[in-house]
């Protein structure tokens, strides 16, 4: 008896390993997904170990050295230096930290809220409160997310935390929409009906019967959204509504550098390209995740 149980556990583990192996196969079939994964891991690594990786960690703060201002890219300063003589590469590395933090915090706030709203809206479709919350969602969706985030950020004090709040307010409806659509298509499936007939609690049905089926698309969207949320954060700081100097923020670095175009092009171009790199990394990774979770072959 005891042995049987143990072997069952082993079998389950083997099955689990097999699933992981197959998922990895599907993910890695496309080389670009691996490139995306490596890029994301590098960005995370650089962000965590910025003080050790950056060539001039002290340049991340209010450091000024006008003697070496606006130096073009060189071996000592691969991305050049800015108007205050600070090493741009080092500042970019430090800027990764808040960028990633922004993406993670916003998604942690937005995904549960949006999914819950979408689940309730979809499962109770036709009831008055479902109509009400989905109409409210529509109202949020009627304002382009970046504009809404800008307006909210403008009304608050410009800090990282407030930027996160502003982006979150404009982002949750997209998850509500996604989950709403998927829930409607699932709620009449036999397994949901069966659970209902067994008298299962409605909230339990929503969260333990329906929601698990949505995890794939939600996870895919989260991966892709990491890049887009980071971009929105950078856009806020570009306009001047994000974190304030001297904390390095990618958007601020780009807009500050734009003043020195075209002569000192590197001041804004390299941080701008780094934003592209971040978005590209999460997009490639997201495509891989989608491949891994959807294709049945």
């Amino acid at each position: 008896m005891y042995n049987e149980e143990a072997s069952m556990v082993l079998l389950a583990r083997a099955a689990q390993r097999d699933r992981i192996k197959r998922a990895w196969y599907r993910f890695s079939r496309h080389k670009l997904s691996i490139v995306g994964l490596i890029m994301v891991l590098s960005i995370v690594f650089i962000a965590i170990f910025a003080p050790y990786v950056a060539p001039y960690p002290e340049h991340a703060g209010p450091y000024v050295d006008f003697g070496s201002a606006c130096e073009p890219p060189s071996l000592a300063h691969p991305f050049g230096t800015d108007a205050m003589g600070r090493d741009i590469l080092s500042r970019v590395f430090f800027a990764f930290r808040d960028a990633l933090l922004m993406g993670i915090v916003v998604l942690i706030i937005v995904v549960p809220i949006g999914s819950t709203v979408g689940l309730i809206g979809g499962y109770f479709e036709g009831k008055w409160f479902s109509t009400l919350i989905m109409r409210i969602t529509d109202v949020f969706l009627a304002i382009p997310p970046l504009v809404l985030a800008l307006a909210i950020a403008a009304l608050l004090r410009p800090t990282l935390l407030n930027s996160m709040m502003a982006v979150s307010v404009s982002w949750w409806p997209w998850y509500a929409r996604l989950v709403y659509g998927m829930t409607i298509s699932l709620k009449n499936e036999p397994f949901v009906k069966a659970a209902e007939l067994q008298g299962m609690n409605k909230f339990k049905i929503m969260f333990s019967e329906i929601l698990p089926n949505h995890l794939g698309p939600i996870l895919t969207k989260m991966t892709l959204d990491m890049g887009w949320v980071i971009l929105t954060g950078a856009s806020l700081s570009f306009v001047g509504l994000g974190e304030q100097p001297p904390t390095p923020a990618l958007g601020t670095m780009v807009s500050d550098g734009a003043k020195y175009l075209p002569t000192y092009w590197w001041i804004s171009v390299f941080p701008a390209l780094m934003i592209v790199v971040i978005i590209l990394a999460f997009n490639l990774l997201g495509d891989g995740v989608r491949e891994m979770l959807t294709s049945g072959e």
Binding site: L231, L261, P262, W265, A272, L273, V276, I279, N283
Partner: peptide, 14 residues
């Protein structure tokens, strides 16, 4: 798709 509009703006201007 992955390049934001303001980055295009800077590159185009340049």
């Amino acid at each position: 798709i992955v390049t934001p509009a303001f980055v295009w703006a800077i590159l185009f201007a340049l």
